[in-house]
């Protein structure tokens, strides 16, 4: 029912939008519709967030109330070599992970999209949807064994085919531990990104594609010349969601390396967890959280700016 949306109907000119201005309906209508959301967000997101930000300016030894110490936590934070190191780590992790997820989701979606058989398209889509139910914990357990030492799957494979003379401790060396975390869950086709891209591709009008094919455009060229520009919006969305998730990542670090070796896999969110819950420095942890939040926000704004700078095909 909505699949017919073509680029032309979605052009962003105010006159063609269907919203009614507030003049037509009483102002309380939208407010009424928003009240449940705002109430909940206020109670369980804004107030706790403000509380956390407030506590980032305190020495907070729970259950005692925080003791105001001004910017001390922030000063200590930017003098903290582990925190600084964790910022560099998460930047690498985020970029690597996002690139992997984006590329693999796109490859997977293109493979499915290019099938001629509708039936098979649906089957493959289903095949790559179901693994979404596997809890991340199980994935981590499996990948721990992939990267393990002498008997690890990766080592046995690489020494077996003669690519390596000796097994390598992937999670136990500063140069390989972070890349190893990035590749967890490879090929990373399954997931929300794959589904969004596939849906966006299926949204493209098939006439354009057929025309391109008739014009002698190779399939591969079509992917780059037509598909990729046309799904910029969904890609930007996945980019933001994935960068955002990467920025807050701590489960893989917690389970696979606990931040080692020598803090090369320490992430700010994991450091927040350790400082707050393991060391009991909740004020300091809140400061880490506040910085993390600001950085994610800045990054998302930057991506949105980039996205809309040369946008001529905006759908939303």
């Amino acid at each position: 029912m909505t699949q017919q949306t073509t680029p032309s109907t979605g052009a962003k000119s105010e006159s063609s939008r269907w919203q009614l201005s507030s003049g037509f309906v009483p102002i309380y209508i939208p407010i009424l519709f928003l009240i449940p959301a705002l109430l909940l967000l206020l109670s369980f997101r804004y107030i706790p967030a403000v509380s956390a930000i407030f506590h980032s300016f305190t020495y907070w030894n729970i259950p005692e109330p925080g003791e105001f110490i001004g910017l001390e936590n922030y000063q200590a934070l930017f003098d903290d070599p582990i925190f600084i190191k964790s910022l560099g780590n998460i930047l690498k992790y985020m970029i690597g992970r996002t690139a992997l997820v984006l590329v693999m989701a796109f490859v997977g979606a293109e493979l499915v999209y290019n099938l001629t058989s509708d039936r098979w398209r649906n089957i493959w889509r289903m095949v790559f949807t179901i693994p979404m139910v596997i809890p991340f914990t199980v994935n981590l357990l499996v990948w721990q064994q992939v990267y393990a030492g002498r008997q690890g799957m990766l080592n046995e494979f690489l020494t077996g085919i003669g690519a390596m003379a000796r097994p390598y401790p992937w999670l136990g060396r500063p140069d390989s531990a972070l890349p190893a975390l990035i590749f967890i869950g490879f090929p990373a086709v399954t997931g929300f990104g794959f589904l969004i891209i596939l849906a966006a591709l299926q949204n493209l009008s098939s006439e354009v594609n057929d025309a391109a094919l008739i014009d002698g455009c190779s399939r591969l060229r079509r992917v780059f010349a037509i598909d990729l520009p046309a799904i910029r919006g969904p890609l930007a969305l996945i980019l933001i969601l994935s960068l955002n998730q990467g920025m807050q990542e701590f489960a893989p670090m917690l389970v696979m390396t606990q931040g080692g070796p020598i803090n090369t896999t320490m992430s700010p969110a994991y450091y927040l967890y350790i400082q707050g819950f393991t060391y009991g420095k909740h004020g300091y942890a809140s400061a880490i959280g506040a910085v993390l939040m600001l950085m994610t926000l800045a990054l998302s704004i930057f991506i949105l700016r980039m996205r809309y700078r040369r946008a001529y095909d905006v759908e939303v």
Binding site: Q144, G149, R150, P169, G172, T257, P261
Partner: peptide, 20 residues
């Protein structure tokens, strides 16, 4: 120690290596 002694995060995994 095992070559990946820094990559192991739980004692249970060490015991599993030994039992295996």
């Amino acid at each position: 120690l095992p070559i990946d002694y820094i990559g192991i995060t739980s004692l249970g995994d060490v015991m599993r290596m030994w039992l295996g």
